[in-house]
């Protein structure tokens, strides 16, 4: 190219053929470059691609989708699962309280949660993270907390053990930032995710101040023998690769009146769950009578997960 060169308007045949050859060669190599896709671990069926947002589904469509998913679970895991979709209870307002004075850091809640919610075993996904913090050090100081203390170090009287999971904020930052409304807060205060709608941008994970959201960086793997067949569409049904998931207070249990799995397994009784709108509930009694605090109160997220310091 030189200055003053005139644009050429004509194209001779030879140039055209050469250009096409270059283009074709590049296209061919491009197609070959896509060859790893033949080993793709998850190929979305067309019906999944076309599926609408959860809140826009009619009851009939939901029924068909649940049936389809149950069939797929039977094929992949060999388990006849039941997918239900319990709706928020009227006037219920779920809340959770955890007594740090009692927690011994046994982490049984972590594994009960994995079992109940069909969390991926490999790569491992856990909704609950138990932090170990020295009592006479900085107290509740997250930066000096230990996240992976070996099991021999649990139950030490010189340490606090603080399990952290989704705080089900009244004012959830994760919901605000989701570009496609794949996550929202339900009437009863539980923040849920439509696993069929999430695009996997992980903006909610960046926004969450409690490290409560988990991303399926690989295809989640759960042995069929361990699969919990009692499933909720918005909670513990098998997840896809590349979508976000999080604690839902076991809504498939709690919305039918049962306790969450993490509460039932806790050997110390440090975990308490209930309906804040019921003045006689356990949770209401704790919030009324005990010294409670919430994590990172200054952020204005208004968690529904209270920490208690009590004997």
């Amino acid at each position: 190219m030189e200055k003053g060169q005139k644009p050429d308007r004509k194209l001779n045949r030879r140039d055209f053929i050469a250009g096409m050859a270059v283009t074709l060669a590049a296209a061919g190599a491009g197609a070959a470059a896509l060859s790893p896709l033949i080993r793709a671990e998850e190929i979305p069926p067309l019906e999944d691609v076309l599926q609408k947002h959860y809140q826009r589904l009619t009851p009939e469509e939901k029924k068909a989708i649940f049936a389809r998913l149950e069939k797929r679970i039977l094929a992949t895991h060999g388990v006849q699962a039941t997918i239900r979709d319990p709706q928020p209870l009227e006037n219920a307002h779920f809340a959770y309280a955890l007594n740090i004075g009692r927690c011994i850091g046994c982490r049984k809640c972590v594994y009960a949660c994995m079992k109940e919610n069909n969390l991926s075993r490999d790569p491992q996904i856990q909704y609950i993270r138990v932090l170990k913090m020295k009592k006479q050090g900085h107290g509740i100081d997250l930066e000096s907390a230990v996240h992976d203390y070996p099991q021999e170090e649990a139950g030490d009287k010189n340490y606090y053990y603080m399990p952290v999971q989704c705080q089900q904020c009244e004012n959830p930052p994760c919901v605000k930032v989701c570009p496609v409304k794949a996550t929202w807060r339900e009437e009863d205060g539980i923040v849920v995710i439509d696993y069929n709608w999430c695009i996997g941008c992980r903006y909610c994970q960046a926004a969450c101040p409690y490290h409560a959201r988990r991303f399926n960086f690989a295809k989640p793997r759960v042995p069929g023998a361990e699969l919990n067949p009692n499933m909720g569409y918005l909670s513990n049904r098998p997840r896809f690769m590349g979508v976000m998931e999080k604690c839902t207070f076991c809504l498939h249990r709690t919305r039918t009146g049962r306790y969450p799995a993490c509460l039932e397994v806790c050997p110390t009784g440090a975990r308490k769950f209930g309906d804040m709108s019921d003045p006689d509930s356990e949770i209401r009694r704790i919030v009324d009578k005990e010294r409670v605090y919430v994590l990172k109160q200054d952020l204005g997220t208004v968690p529904r997960f209270y920490y208690v310091f009590a004997k």
């Binding site: 009692r102 046994c106 982490r107 049984k108 491992q124 856990q126 993270r129 992976d148 139950g155 110390t268």
Partner: peptide, 18 residues
């Protein structure tokens, strides 16, 4: 209160440096 049946810590994928 005594309880001894503790469980193992979480594991991270190999490529994660902690």
């Amino acid at each position: 209160f005594k309880f001894e049946k503790y469980t193992p810590p979480p594991v991270w994928p190999e490529q994660i440096e902690r």
